[in-house]
Computed example of a mutant assay.
Amino acid sequence: MTVYGATIREVDVVVIGAGQAGLSAAYHLRRRGFAPYTGFVVLDADDAPGGAWAHRAPSLRMATVHGFHDLPDFELPAPDPAAPAREVVPGYFAAYEARHALPVERPVRVRAVRSLPDGRLRVETDRGGWTARALVNATGTWTRPFLPHYPGHFAGRQLHYAAYRGPEEFAGRRVVVVGGGASAVQVLSEVGAVAETVWVTRRPPVYRDGPFTEESGRAAVALVEERVRQGLPVRSVVSVTGLGPSVAYRRAEELGVLRRRPMFDRLTEHGVAWGGTEEPADVIVWATGFRPEVTHLAPLGLRGPGGGIRMAGTQAADDPRIHLVGYGPSASTVGANRAGRAAAAGLVRLLGDPRAAAPAAVPAQRS
């Protein structure tokens, strides 16, 4: 681990985050000629490799993972389907960092990114400062779980999917699972075997019969891309792809727990209620998704009136120095890979080929 002092370190590109999107961006930056530690560096807030995968529930097995795509130029060795994803994927990420000699510094928590008068960026962290000509933000969403507000007070336990660790602690309880995506289905497929469950969603879930094809993937990504082009709040790709056949889905179907009820209108002391009808509950699990972690970018003023960051591909439309990967349409393992490649290509166009003798200057940006 590097010991940081007061010195400000200088690089061409800072990558924030070492999950799938950050590692893909780092791989492509190195392949394009950016040198480790002088051309680029990756700052990761975690103590060890793995990104969000290291924080997933121990009960999530590789057989029940909702899709995974290999990082570029290194396949994930065929895992044991019963192996915990939180062990397999972090091990793969660690091997990937070593194989490609990626300059990952950890644990480093980025506090703020600010624009300097000379057109560079200052990246402020809990372990010192960096300056860069450009930045790739790959912080994902895991650290910002979304909990919707409903009126009333529930005296039982509430937890977000991010804090879910498996079904054992819910045995014999009555559990309300909120959410219409893959995370909710995973919880239902596990908790439904040991507890009584009630499934509620805001909208009827959308099911698809077949696998997620490249054609359907492009159509889904296009819908999400249109939102980020307009600077609207990000929607997940899963929200427009629908629920497809999976091990978790089939298990939940066999358990008979996929009987969806509409969203309740309030919490009560001992459960949830629709009008005058109350459903008793011991626990509420909110599988209600996540929001992008971009609070450290606030000093750059990238958020528009629509509430989101207006994007042009992976680039922030209002600041060509900033690329966001694992954001919006690239918030999936296959999307993250493509975004990492696109961001690296965009930064070569902006900064010049790092293998050339005289790279182009960075245009000054507003503070």
Rank of each mutant, 00 (worst) to 15 (best):
E196V: 09
P81V: 12
E124C: 08
D118N: 15
R250V: 00
L324S: 01
T197P: 06
L60V: 15
R173C: 12
I16K: 08
T277W: 11
P320R: 10
Q315Y: 00
E293T: 10
R173L: 15
P81G: 03
A171D: 02
P58V: 06
A193E: 15
F154L: 13
T295D: 14
A35W: 01
Q315H: 00
T143D: 13
A357T: 10
T143H: 11
V14R: 08
E254K: 13
G313Y: 00
E226V: 01
Y161Q: 07
A317Q: 01
R229Q: 11
R218Q: 11
G210T: 12
V237N: 04
H100Q: 05
T314H: 00
V42R: 05
P363G: 05
S216K: 13
G179R: 13
V187P: 01
T139G: 11
R109G: 04
S332Y: 03
V187W: 08
R266S: 03
A101R: 15
A52V: 11
E214I: 10
R321A: 05
A138R: 14
P90M: 10
E105I: 09
L300D: 00
G19D: 04
R227L: 14
A83S: 13
A281L: 03
E169S: 14
H69A: 14
V3T: 14
W274I: 04
G326V: 04
A248L: 05
F68S: 02
L223R: 15
V283Y: 00
P148I: 01
V334L: 12
G67F: 08
H323R: 12
T268R: 07
S24F: 01
G50I: 08
T288I: 06
E168D: 15
R30H: 10
L302N: 03
S115Q: 15
L71A: 05
V224N: 03
V240E: 09
T197K: 10
P79C: 05
W142R: 13
L300I: 02
A98T: 15
A52F: 10
A298N: 00
P292Q: 09
L71H: 06
Q186I: 03
F34A: 07
P117F: 06
A57R: 05
D265N: 10
A219S: 08
V11F: 03
E225I: 01
R165I: 00
S239T: 13
A361N: 04
I309C: 09
R235S: 08
R120V: 04
A78N: 02
R349G: 07
S183M: 08
R127C: 06
Y4F: 12
G22N: 04
G180I: 08
A316R: 02
R203A: 12
S239I: 07
G180L: 08
G129E: 15
Q230N: 09
A331R: 07
G308H: 01
V185E: 03
A344Y: 06
P320S: 05
G166R: 11
V334F: 01
G51T: 08
D353H: 09
R229E: 14
R157I: 08
D70E: 06
L347A: 09
E253V: 02
G140I: 11
F34M: 05
G140Y: 11
R111A: 15
T295P: 00
